[in-house]
Computed example of a mutant assay.
Amino acid sequence: MNPLQRAEQAVLGAVFLDPGQLERLSPWLRPEHFHRPAHQALFASALTLRDRGHPGSTAALGAVPVSWVADTVTEAGTRTRGVTASYAHQLVGACPRPEHAVVYGRMVLEGAIHRTVAEHAVRLHQAARADTVRGNTEETLVRANALAGLLTDLARRWGASPRPVPPMTQHEPASRATAVVDADEEFLLACLTARPDQLDAVVGWLRPSDFGGPGHQQLYRALGALHHRGEPVDQLTVLWEVQRRGALTNGVLDAERVLTVCDPLAVAGAAEHFGEQVLRAALVRTAAESARQIRVLAEDAALPAGRLIGHALHVLGPLDEVRQRWHTARTGSAPDKPSPPAPGRSSPGRAEAARARSCPRRNSAPTPAAPIPAAASRTPRRSPL
C-alpha cells in the first residue's frame, strides 16, 4: 500500500473517531480528491450526515456513538459497492492520531493535485493532436482554459497564490514532423518573397518561432530583416541574407533549398491566410508540448504540490502568448486582459491548508532576562601577547 492510500485511510479513520475534524477539512478537501471510489463515497457520506444534523457529527473524541460509523457506511453503500462495516473499522485502526487529520488531508489533496493535473494534461495533449488532424483550435483552447482554471483552483485550495514559477530543470521539446504544416510555411515564404509588402500584414502577430522547421525560421527572419531595412527582396537577396546569418554554414539550409522555397512563381495567394495557418499549427503544437511537459512534472511524486502548480502555470505561459497572437490574427485586435483579483482575506479553508504545511510553535510569554552581574558587565581586558 502506497503512502497516498494510507493517508486516505487515515483521514477517514480520523473522521470516524473525531467527527469534529470535518469542520477543519470540509472547506478545502472534497470527496473527489480521494483516489479510491470507496473513500470518495465514505467522505461524501460523512459530509451528508453532518449536513443533515446527525447526532454523531457533533460528538467529542471518545464519545462517538456507533451509529455514526454504521450510518456513514450505510449512506456510502448507496453511492458505491464494496463498503462494509469491517472496512470502516479497518480505517479506524489505520489512523495514527485523529488530531492530525488536517495533515493527513493535506497529503490526500497533494495526491489529488498530481493526479488531476496529469489527467488534464493528457486531455490537452489529446485535443491538440486531434485539432492538428482536423485543422482546428477549438478543442485545444477549451482544454487549455480548463487546465488553467484547474491550476488556479488547486492553488487556492492548497493555500498558495497561482503564480508561475520556472522549473529547475528545463525539458527538451519533443521532435515533430508534419508535412502539412511545412507546406503552409513554404507557401507563406513564397508569398512574402513575391510580395514583400504583405509582411506588414503578418509581422504584428507572426513570429519566427511559430515556424516548425529551423530553416523556415531563418528564412522568415531574413525576409523580415530585408523588409525592415527597406532593401529589395527576391530569391538572391534572401539567399545572401541567409548566408550572412550563418544558416548556410551550420547546415540548417542550403542554397538550392532557399531558391526553391523562395520561388515567387511557386504559389500565388494572400500571405495573411497562410500566416494564420502557420500560427494555428504553432498554437496546437505549443499546446501539445506544454501538455507533455506538465504531465512529466505531475508524474514526479517527489515534486511538492505548490511547486507543481507554479511550474505548470509557467509551462502554460508560451501557449497563452501564442493564443493572444492567434486572437489578434483572427480579429485584428488584442484580447482584453483580465483584471487582477481584488485583494481580500483568505478563506478559512485556505488558511487551514496552509497551516497544515507548516505548524508554527506556540507563542509563549518571554522569559525575563536575568540581571547581569556588575563584574560580568565589564569589558574584559585583553591579555598581553
Rank of each mutant, 00 (worst) to 15 (best):
A287K: 03
V252W: 10
T249P: 09
A281L: 04
V284I: 08
E272Q: 13
F274D: 08
D254I: 00
E272K: 07
G246F: 05
D263H: 05
A271P: 10
A281N: 09
V284T: 14
N250P: 12
E276T: 13
H273N: 13
F274Y: 15
E256S: 11
V278Y: 00
G251N: 07
L259K: 02
A270R: 14
P264I: 06
A268R: 15
A281D: 08
V267Y: 14
D263Y: 01
H273A: 15
T260D: 13
Q277S: 09
C262D: 00
R280N: 12
G251C: 13
F274I: 04
D263G: 06
A281G: 14
G251W: 07
R245L: 10
H273W: 09
C262I: 01
C262G: 04
E276P: 05
G246V: 05
G275W: 03
V252G: 07
G275S: 11
E276W: 12
N250D: 15
A271D: 04
R285Y: 11
L253D: 06
R257N: 10
R280I: 05
G269C: 08
A247E: 06
L253R: 07
L265K: 15
L253F: 09
A281W: 04
T249R: 15
V278T: 02
A255W: 09
Q277V: 04
G251E: 14
T260P: 01
L279E: 01
V258F: 03
G251Q: 08
A266D: 03
E256H: 15
D254S: 11
A287E: 01
A282N: 01
L279D: 00
R245F: 09
A266F: 04
N250G: 13
D254M: 02
A268F: 14
D263T: 04
F274G: 01
G246R: 10
G269H: 05
L259A: 07
L265V: 11
H273P: 07
F274Q: 12
C262F: 03
G246K: 02
V252I: 14
N250E: 13
V258N: 06
H273T: 15
F274N: 05
D254C: 05
A282S: 05
V267T: 09
E276Y: 09
G275I: 02
D263S: 03
E256R: 10
D254A: 07
V284F: 12
V261C: 00
L279M: 11
G275K: 12
R285E: 10
